[in-house]
Computed example of a mutant assay.
Amino acid sequence: MDLIVELRQYTLHPGARDTLIELFERELVAGQEAAGITLGGRFRDLDDPDRFVWLRSFPDMAARERALHAFYGGPVWRAHREAANATMLDSDDVLLLRGPGFAAPDAGGPVVATVCHPLDPEAFAGHFERRLRPALTAAGSAPLAVHRTEHAENTFPALPVRTGEDVLVWFTAGGAGPVSDLSDLPDLSDHVRCAPQRLRLEPVRRGA
C-alpha cells in the first residue's frame, strides 16, 4: 500500500551530525512513533559529513496532520527541540512523496537514493518500469522502493516541503560501482530536466 512519505535532508553545523543522531535515536524516534509516525531509514550521507537524511511515513495526509501536531505540540519535542535545532543549518529540504516508505535492509551496507526530475512524470514512470527497473535488476541493484511526488497541500505549514516540482525517487542497495553512478543504465537525458541527484547513504542502526 502506498503511504505519504517525507524524504528529509538536513544540513547541519560542521561536526554536529553525530550529536543529532545520538539525540534522534535516544529520544526522537520513540517520541515520533508514540505520536503515530512510522520512522523509516536514517542515514549519514557518505559524500557530505554535515548531511543527515531520513524518512518517515503516514497512512494519508489527514493522519500526517494529526501525527505532526501530536509530536511537535507534545512533551518530547518541547524537551529536546532546542538541542536538536542547535545542530541544524537547514531542515527545509523535504520532498513529500507517495510510495511504500523505505528502511535500510537488515543486511547492512550503504544504499543509494536516486532523485530524478522528469520532463513528463507519467511518461517517465512508464519508462522507469519498462527500461530502468529491468536494467537495475539485471545489474544486481533491483530498486528496493520507488516513490513519486505527492502534490497534496501541506497541511502542516510549520514544516515546509518543496513545491512546484515533480520527482521520481528510487532506492537501491550498494554505494559503489557502475550502476550507482548510472553509467550502466539507458540514457536518461531525453527524459529528465537535469542530471539525477544521487545520495550515497550509510544507514544508522537503531540505538547507534
Rank of each mutant, 00 (worst) to 15 (best):
L3F: 04
L3M: 15
L3P: 02
I4F: 10
I4V: 15
R8F: 09
Y10N: 02
P14D: 07
A16H: 10
A16I: 04
I21P: 00
I21Y: 08
L23A: 03
L23T: 03
L39I: 15
F43Q: 00
L46T: 10
D47M: 05
D47C: 05
P49K: 03
F52C: 03
W54E: 01
D60V: 09
A62L: 13
R66G: 08
P75M: 15
W77Y: 15
R78F: 12
A83N: 05
M88V: 13
D93T: 09
D93V: 14
L97R: 02
R98N: 06
G99F: 00
G101K: 00
A104N: 05
A107W: 07
V112G: 00
V115W: 06
P118I: 04
E122M: 15
E122S: 12
G126H: 12
R131K: 12
R133W: 05
P134Q: 13
A135G: 03
S141L: 07
S141R: 14
A142T: 09
L144W: 05
L144S: 02
A145R: 02
E150M: 09
H151I: 09
P160H: 11
T163I: 08
D166E: 13
V167R: 01
L168H: 02
F171W: 12
A176E: 15
V179C: 07
S180H: 13
L182K: 03
S183P: 04
L185K: 02
L185R: 02
L188Q: 06
D190K: 14
V192I: 14
P196E: 10
Q197G: 09
Q197E: 15
Q197W: 15
R198H: 12
L199M: 11
R200T: 08
L201F: 06
L201S: 00
